[in-house]
Design a protein around this nucleic acid. Structure first.
Lengths: 346, 346
DNA sequence: TGAAGTTGAGAAACCGGTTTCTACGCGCGA
DNA sequence: TCGCGCGTAGAAACCGGTTTCTCAACTTCA
C-alpha cells in the first residue's frame, strides 16, 4: 500500500486537485455529487493529507510547545496536562519537551520550535534571573515573533516590557506568607524553612514570603532555622536528621518548600523517634497529589496547576490582539489537612 | 523583522539557494570562503529553516509520538521521560499526547500522527483486548506503515503476527507472582488482592500471577479476599475500611496493584486503629517514586519504567531491518523496603 | 431572446526547502 | 595542445498541499 497523494485521489475521482482540496477544507462550495465521489476515492485509497505540506502552504502549523526542565515532576506534569487538554480541544497539537534543566538543551529546543514554526511556546518553571538569561529570552522571543509565534512564560516572572511575551504567574511570595501565617496562627514560633534554591525565582520568592510573615507578627527570624539549598528528598531528610541528632528539637514546625521535601522531613522526624504532627507539625508547598498519600495527609500551600496550564494555553492561542502583553497572576492558598496542629504543650 | 527564506539568504550572500541548502545540510562539499559568506548571511538575517518545508522534500519528519491515557500518572510520565531522553539524543522531536482514556480521542490522535508522517508512534498502557480494539490497531498499524511509520506497543500485548508493530512488554503475571511469593515467604496466608481492572491486560495478568503463586504454595484462594475493581485512591481506601469495619482483621497482608492503592490502603489500616507493618503488611506495584515517600517506605514490585521507555524509543527509531517484528519482554522484581514483615504473632 | 448574475470546477502559481542534473574552470598526463 | 577528471556552484524539478484566477454552464430577469 503506497502512500497516496491528493493527485492520486483527484485522478481516482476524476476531478482536479483543487476540488479535492476544497472537499478536505470544507470552506468552499462543492456540489454534493462531486463531494461524494471525492470522499469515496479518499476512502478507497486510504488517503491521509500530509500535515507538512498543509503547514507549508497554509502557514499555520497548529502546534503548541510546552517546555519544562523535567517530565517526571508531578508539578510540571499537571501543568502540561492542563495545557494539553485545552490545546487539543482547540484543534492544535501539543509538543511536550523537557530540557533536564540544561541551559544548552533549552536553547536547542527553542531553536527547534522556531524551525517548526510553532504557534506558541510555553516555558514553565522557575529560573535564575541572570543577565544572560534575560538576553537569551529576549532574543528568542523576538525570533519566535518574527515567524508568527508567541512566547508564554509560566511560573516565571516577566522579562521586560520591550519583549513580546505573555506571562502567567502564581504567588510565590504570597503563598509562603499565607503558609507561614497559618503556622504562626496555630501557635508556632520556631519554624524551620526547608529547601528551595536560593537565586532562583521560586525559592527566593517563597523565602521572602516567610520572612515577611515572621516580621508581620513581630517574630525575629533565627537564621539557624533557615535551611534552603535545593529540592530533593535526600537533602531534606539529611538536614532534618542532622538537626535532630544535635540535641532535642528546638523547633515545633517545618515549612517545606515542596511536598516531596515535606514527605522526607516527616520520615526524618519519625526516624528520630518523634511524632507528626504531635511533636512536629509539617507544612508542604504545591499541594500535589502526594499530599493525599502521605500520612498524616499533608497540609500544603495550593498552587492552581491545572488552571495555570489552561491559562497559559489560552493565552498561547488567543486570537484577541490585546492579549499579547498580558500578565496573569494566579492566587495560592493553604489547604488544611492533618499534618499541622498546635505546638506540643499547648 | 520579517521571516526570511533561503532565497533571501542566497541573495544576501550572492550565491544560489542550492549552495545555502548545502551549507545547511553539510553533506556536500562547499568551499570554505563560500561557506563563510553564507553563514554570515544566515547570521545577519537571523534565518531559521522551515521544518515543514524540510520534511516535505526530505520525506523524513524526525518526529516520534508517544501516546498515553494520562499525563499525570507517574508511571506514564516516567516512560515518556525515558522515550524523550533517548529520542532527543538521536536528533528527533518527541510529541507527547494523552487521550484521557477515551477511545475516540485515541483514534483522533492516531489520525493526526499519520498526518504528521510520524516516524514512529509509541502506544503505552494496558487496554481491553476486544475484537474492535484489535481491528482498529491493525488498521492503524498498516496505515502508519504505508506512510513510512512504525507502531510500537509498550506495556500492552502483541496484536498478531500479521500486523507491523513492535512490542515492549513487562512481566505482569511474573511480577505479581514474585510479589505474592514474597508475602507467602514471610509467612502470610490470607492476602487481600486490591485493585486492578478486570478485563484489562495489566489487571488480568497480575491477578493471574497472584493465583498461580497461591496455587504453587498449595494455598486455596479465598475469593472474598479478591478485591479488584479499579485503580484509584478512593476505591482502595473505602474497600479496606469497609472490610475492617465488618469485624477484626481476617487478613495479614494487602497486595495492592499499584503504589497509590497501597498508600490509600495504609491510610485505611491506620485509620482503623491498626499498624503498618506490625498488624498488616502492605505490598505495592510499580515501585514509583511515591514508594519512597510513604511511611513506612513501601515494598513494591519494580517495573523498569525508564528502560521500558528507552527500549520503546530504541525500537521506534532503529534502522536495523530485523527489528520490525521485535518483541521485548522486560523482567520485574520485588524491591524490599519497610512495609512488609511477618504476620502478627510470629 | 439576450444580458447579467451565480454556481461549480479546472489550471497554475505558490509555500520553502532538497536534490538531481548540468556546466564551468582548472590542474594534469598523454 | 588536447582531453580528462575533479572540485564547486547554479538552474530547475520536485515534495504535496492551498489558493487565486479564470472560465464554462446554468439561472434569472427584463
Amino acid at each position: 500500500m503506497a502512500r497516496s497523494t491528493i493527485r492520486d485521489v483527484a485522478a481516482h475521482a476524476g476531478v482536479s486537485v483543487a476540488t479535492v482540496s476544497r472537499v478536505l477544507g470544507g470552506n468552499y462550495p462543492v456540489a454534493a455529487r462531486t463531494r461524494t465521489k471525492v470522499l469515496r476515492a479518499i476512502e478507497e485509497l486510504d488517503f491521509v493529507a500530509n500535515a507538512h505540506a498543509r503547514a507549508l502552504s497554509g502557514s499555520s502549523s497548529k502546534l503548541v510547545a510546552i517546555v519544562t526542565s523535567s517530565m517526571n515532576a508531578p508539578f510540571y506534569a499537571d501543568i502540561a496536562s492542563g495545557v494539553e487538554s485545552y490545546v487539543s480541544v482547540e484543534g492544535r497539537l501539543c509538543m511536550y519537551v523537557s530540557t533536564d534543566g540544561d541551559v544548552g538543551r533549552e536553547l536547542d529546543v527553542l531553536g527547534l520550535m522556531r524551525e517548526q514554526r510553532a504557534e506558541a511556546v510555553i516555558l514553565v518553571g522557575g529560573v535564575a534571573m541572570t543577565p544572560e538569561y534575560h538576553d537569551r529570552m529576549a532574543r528568542f522571543a523576538h525570533g519566535l515573533a518574527s515567524v508568527g509565534g508567541r512566547l508564554v512564560l509560566c511560573g516565571r516572572p516577566s522579562i521586560g516590557p520591550d519583549v513580546p511575551a505573555v506571562v502567567v504567574e502564581y504567588e510565590n511570595e504570597g503563598g509562603a506568607h499565607a503558609g507561614t501565617s497559618h503556622l504562626i496562627a496555630r501557635g508556632h514560633r520556631r519554624i524551620i524553612l526547608l529547601g528551595g534554591i536560593p537565586g532562583q525565582t521560586t525559592g527566593d520568592g517563597r523565602i521572602a514570603g516567610y520572612r515577611r510573615a515572621m516580621a508581620d507578627h513581630g517574630i525575629p527570624v533565627d537564621e539557624s532555622l533557615m535551611m534552603p539549598g535545593q529540592f530533593g528528598r535526600r537533602f531534606a531528610y539529611d538536614r532534618v536528621r542532622e538537626r535532630l541528632a544535635r540535641g532535642p528539637a528546638d523547633f515545633t514546625a517545618i515549612f517545606a518548600l515542596d511536598d516531596i521535601l515535606a514527605g522526607a522531613a516527616m520520615h526524618a522526624v519519625r526516624d528520630a523517634g518523634l511524632r507528626v504532627p504531635e511533636d512536629v507539625s509539617v507544612l508542604g508547598y504545591n499541594d500535589s497529589e502526594i499530599a493525599l498519600d502521605l500520612y498524616p495527609a499533608l497540609t500544603s500551600v495550593h498552587i492552581p496547576v491545572q488552571e495555570l496550564g489552561r491559562t497559559a494555553a489560552r493565552l498561547a492561542i488567543s486570537q484577541r490582539p490585546g492579549d499579547e502583553r498580558a500578565r496573569v497572576m494566579l492566587g495560592t492558598h493553604v489547604v488544611v489537612r492533618d499534618s499541622v496542629v498546635g505546638p506540643p504543650g499547648r
